[in-house]
């Protein structure tokens, strides 16, 4: 009897180790599920920009930078995982509330909404908000023209925006060229390639990656 008990006792550490491993695996699965659910809600409770503006006590532009950096991290993380960017519009709205003159969040937010989330209307709304706050900024009008041309294929609207952009102070020379091309109804594919090549010239690595992908797609379409 005692020998049987001794054998059972010898098995106890192995059984305990097995139970611990199974438990750890279960906890890991449960934790992973919870983490994934959490990441879906991760910016849901991000406060509104107007509230943050009051709480920033005069340091709104620094708070806008923090929200901007957080938005980029959010985009980067989701780009590597589930390709869902549901909260990007919300974050860019916060940045716009905090620092309405900060142009890049309107452009990047609109680009992601239109190109990655296939919601060009929301992207154009964000750009419109930026244009109301910064009526003399050529880049916002140019981006609106870009989205009209590439995403909505509304060439008349694109021509209008490019022309507006070409009349604003500080615009580069290529804006006038695009206004002319668009008004001459240049071939859709050729114009799209030129527009995507302009995106390659920006300093935004994420937008450059999307531009490369789109240029490759247009190239394959052309070879067919």
């Amino acid at each position: 009897m005692s020998r049987t008990w001794a054998r059972i006792a010898a098995l106890v550490p192995f059984l305990a180790a097995g139970a611990l491993l199974a438990g750890a695996d279960f906890l890991d699965e449960a934790g992973r599920e919870r983490f994934q659910r959490g990441s879906a809600d991760e910016l849901l409770y991000y406060p509104s920009g107007l509230m943050v503006r009051q709480a920033a006590l005069g340091y709104e532009t620094a708070a806008a930078d923090i929200a901007w950096l957080r938005g980029i991290q959010y985009y980067g993380e989701h780009r590597l995982t589930d390709q869902k960017f549901d909260m990007i519009g919300h974050v860019m709205d916060i940045v716009a509330d905090l620092d309405p003159a900060f142009i890049q969040p309107y452009i990047f937010g609109a680009f992601v909404l239109a190109q990655e989330m296939k919601q060009p209307e929301r992207g154009l709304l964000l750009l419109e908000r930026g244009r109301i706050a910064n009526p003399d900024d050529w880049a916002l009008a140019f981006e609106a023209g870009f989205l009209q041309y590439v995403c909505r294929h509304d060439f008349a609207a694109a021509t209008r925006y490019f022309t507006w952009a070409s009349r604003m102070p500080g615009h580069p020379e290529y804006v006038e060229r695009f206004a002319a091309f668009a008004s001459q109804k240049a071939g859709n594919r050729g114009m799209a390639i030129l527009l995507w090549k302009r995106v390659l010239a920006t300093g935004n690595k994420y937008m450059q990656q999307v531009a490369l992908r789109e240029l490759k797609r247009l190239d394959e379409e052309g070879q067919r």
């Binding site: 340091y59 532009t61 620094a62 806008a64 930078d65 901007w68 950096l69 980029i72 991290q73 900060f102 890049q104 990047f108 920006t202 300093g203 935004n204 690595k205 994420y206």
Partner: peptide, 19 residues
């Protein structure tokens, strides 16, 4: 990390931090 907005971020944080 600022996707081309490094100058703005440094200026904002620098001025806010010093104040």
């Amino acid at each position: 990390l600022a996707l081309g907005e490094g100058k703005k971020v440094v200026t904002d944080f620098g001025l806010a931090g010093s104040s």
